[in-house]
């Protein structure tokens, strides 16, 4: 077990090293900071960003937008998901909306949001529209997957209805909620940053990336990308931790 773990870590490290190696080679072959700056200068640019003047507001506001979008998606996704999971007609009503939302290109939302909303709301709105369908669909799937035998057992033992929902249905959909939340976050961060690039709120990673692009600071564009990846993986990790704390019965 331990040996396997270290072996996997070794392979992961190898893959990262290989990636950086290819990056270095490609940047050498272009030989231009304007097209692909080498990894070391990008690293310096990334570290510089951490101590830059508005770093906290830039990163903080992007995260805040993501969390607001996530919270709204989470609450509505679970609420509507439970309703749809328990009621066929409501599910029939909700299904086309979810399918439409999931198959609409993110850029369409953004372009429309730019017309409908104020700048600061655009990334949040986009975050909601990309995240909500994932969570809602997973909750519905979760309810469909609830073990009917357990519900029958609870009914025979005359367990009251509210207790069945609370103790049989809810725990059964928890793992589905987590997997929904995880994919929602993955797509959500990307969508938020695209939204920021186009709507240009005063602070935000997307705004900073766009500005860096305008000023041809290619290493800064990549540096912000690295920070965005770090944020995304941090929340992915956090979600996994919380899941392990809650889903203890596996």
């Amino acid at each position: 077990m331990n040996i396997k773990l270290t072996k996997n870590k070794l392979i992961t490290t190898l893959s990262v090293v290989l990636l950086i190696g290819i990056w270095k080679l490609v940047s050498l072959s272009y030989g231009s900071e304007l097209i692909l700056p080498p990894p070391e200068s990008t690293l310096v640019a990334t570290l510089k960003l951490f101590i830059a003047e508005n770093f906290i507001s830039t990163v903080g506001l992007t995260i805040l937008r993501g969390l607001i979008g996530f919270a709204v998606s989470f609450i509505l996704g679970i609420g509507l998901g439970i309703l749809a999971g328990g009621n066929r007609s409501f599910h029939a009503f909700l299904k086309p909306i979810l399918v439409t939302l999931r198959s609409t290109p993110v850029i369409s939302f953004i372009l429309l949001a730019l017309i409908w909303f104020r700048v600061d709301m655009v990334p949040i709105f986009i975050a909601f529209l990309t995240m909500f369908p994932f969570i809602c669909t997973n909750v519905i799937d979760g309810i469909k997957n609830v073990d009917r035998d357990l519900v029958e057992m609870a009914n025979i033992y005359r367990v009251p209805h509210h207790k069945i929902i609370q103790k049989v249905y809810l725990p059964a959909i928890v793992p589905f909620i987590f997997s929904g939340a995880s994919s929602a976050m993955g797509f959500g961060w990307r969508a938020i940053i695209i939204g920021e690039v186009l709507s240009q709120p005063q602070f935000g990673i997307g705004t900073a990336m766009q500005t860096a692009q305008t000023y041809l600071l290619v290493n800064e564009v990549i540096a912000w990308t690295i920070i965005a990846i770090m944020i995304s993986s941090f929340f992915e990790m956090l979600l996994r931790r919380v899941e392990r704390k809650i889903v203890v019965w596996r």
């Binding site: 035998d149 357990l150 057992m153 609870a154 025979i156 033992y157 103790k167 049989v168 059964a172 019965w249």
Partner: peptide
């Protein structure tokens, strides 16, 4: 009371919790 072919226990409840559930 009903004892089924399968145990039909709630996976997220411990032995004690499964008993007191009903």
């Amino acid at each position: 009371s009903y004892i089924f072919q399968e145990p039909r226990l709630l996976p997220w409840k411990t032995v004690l919790e499964n008993i007191s559930f009903v």
